[in-house]
């Protein structure tokens, strides 16, 4: 098997928060005695990541995605459990580990707001203790790949979110990290820029063999970037596997889009629901647990004279919804 870069064993994280009751009296009472309550953000998760892989951690808000990434990058201490990233315990060897990993938080910026990105790049070359000549070569290479030459001399505050995000990723790749952690990298970006950023991440993974660990709740990010998926909900892993397996394992439905010249039937077929019907266009959902695809199609074509038919898999989004529902 390939080289294991991340090993996580039974990781737990509990946050303690102050309890704030409503009302004046409760406020006065809290001056004397403060009550605390625990939030279990991670309830014991285990997984491995191999060198050169692209792995996506997905789940709804508050599922524990960011907590996981923050523990693996050494920012947070876990309550229990073990983790090793490139052979190091992140929370004990935070600084040592930081030389080998790159981290991008989609909602936060690491570039100096009032200075052009190039100044931040130069600063971080010193912070990562890079050799002057090698750094120059590297930064030029990244500027070309990410096509940011026209922005590197413009103060960051004047850049658009998409331009800034590309610069953020460049900054986190200057020191040739072995793992790139991306926490919601496409959040807030428009469709075109999103797909651009995804392509760039894929390219870096392919050409530099950088292991990519991604969290996102945009399922398109995951379909585009990662081959392996971990679905996390309420602090627990509820699915782990290949992107294709996830689709086949949970694809118990097909979507059939039809255009008729003439409709004669009423689509009263067992296991087939009408999602949308307008004039001569009909969108159907076929439940494969009740009827096979072949039987459904042969029943459907009896409903009229067909001009066009397309059969689609449900989107990853719907698949994930199905996994959540099954869990609940």
């Amino acid at each position: 098997m390939e080289n294991k870069l991340i090993e996580v064993k039974d990781l737990k994280k509990t946050y303690t928060s102050k309890k704030k009751s409503e009302g004046f009296l409760a406020g006065v009472k809290s001056l004397i005695k403060t009550d605390y309550f625990n939030i279990e953000a991670l309830k014991g998760i285990s997984f491995d990541v191999f060198e050169g892989e692209t792995l996506a951690l997905i789940g709804p808000n508050g599922a524990g995605k960011s907590t996981t990434i923050k523990i693996l990058t050494g920012i947070l201490y876990p309550t229990e459990g073990e983790a090793k990233v490139i052979g190091l315990v992140p929370w004990n060897d935070r600084v040592k580990l930081s030389y080998s990993i790159g981290v991008v938080f989609g909602q936060r910026s690491q570039l100096w707001f009032h200075l052009p990105p190039m100044d931040s790049f130069n600063l971080f070359s010193k912070i990562y203790e890079l050799d002057g000549k090698e750094y120059k070569k590297r930064v030029e290479e990244l500027i070309d790949i990410f096509e940011i030459r026209e922005y590197i001399s413009v103060p960051v505050r004047k850049l658009s979110l998409g331009e800034r995000m590309r610069c953020e990723i460049v900054l986190s790749l200057l020191h040739k990290p072995r793992i790139l952690f991306l926490d919601e990298p496409t959040i807030g970006l428009d469709v075109v820029v999103k797909s651009r950023v995804r392509d760039l991440i894929k390219r870096i993974n392919r050409e530099e063999h950088v292991t990519v660990f991604l969290t996102s709740h945009d399922t398109l990010d995951i379909e585009a970037i990662s081959k392996r998926v971990i679905v996390i909900n309420d602090g627990r892993i509820i699915f782990e596997g290949d992107l294709n397996t996830i689709k086949h394992g949970y694809m118990k439905k097909k979507i059939v889009d039809l255009k008729f010249n003439e409709i004669t039937g009423d689509f009263n077929i067992k296991g087939v629901n009408i999602l949308k019907k307008k004039d001569y266009g009909v969108k159907l959902e076929v439940d494969l647990t009740q009827i096979s695809q072949d039987d459904a199609i042969s029943e459907i074509i009896k409903q009229g004279e067909i001009l066009d038919i397309t059969i689609e898999d449900p989107s990853l989004e719907e698949v994930i919804k199905a996994i959540y529902n099954e869990e609940n």
């Binding site: 990058t73 935070r94 930081s98 936060r108 990562y128 203790e129």
Partner: peptide
């Protein structure tokens, strides 16, 4: 407060 501190904790400095 905002959590932006994360960005600086993943860098090789104090």
């Amino acid at each position: 407060r905002s959590g932006n501190v994360s960005n600086f904790l993943v860098k090789p400095f104090s």
